[in-house]
């Protein structure tokens, strides 16, 4: 298989590993990092297609996704800090108060 398929397979694998990591790990910070991994996986496939089709819009989109990821982290981490201040643990199991 050629380069494109290889990279796309890597992209899919990174995305899958990220999602499974969220399911499997028991630490909130680590789960956040796996979310970033997912995002990177998607960004890789975006890069592949941008290069293949030669459109600048793809590159622009990637830039904007960087921006969004930064903004997201900027808010998610403080929220996490507050949460841990209140709950005194990084175990997601302790934060099940909203269950139905």
């Amino acid at each position: 298989m050629d380069n494109a398929h290889l990279l796309l397979a890597v992209s899919g694998t990174l995305f899958t590993l990220g999602l499974v990591g969220v399911i499997v790990r028991r630490n909130l910070l680590v789960m956040l990092m796996f979310l970033e991994l997912m995002l990177n996986g998607v960004l890789l496939s975006l890069a592949v297609f941008t290069q293949l089709l030669g459109v600048e819009a793809g590159a622009v989109l990637m830039l904007l996704v960087f921006t969004v990821a930064a903004a997201e982290i900027a808010i998610a981490v403080p929220i996490l800090l507050l949460l841990v201040r209140a709950g005194h643990t990084l175990d997601p199991g302790a934060y099940g108060g909203l269950k139905g």
Partner: peptide, 20 residues
Amino acid sequence: MIYAIMLLDVRDRSFTERFS
């Protein structure tokens, strides 16, 4: 993220047990 990790150096069950 590394700042956050350094701030929240918690050593409870979330640290000792890796998997959910």
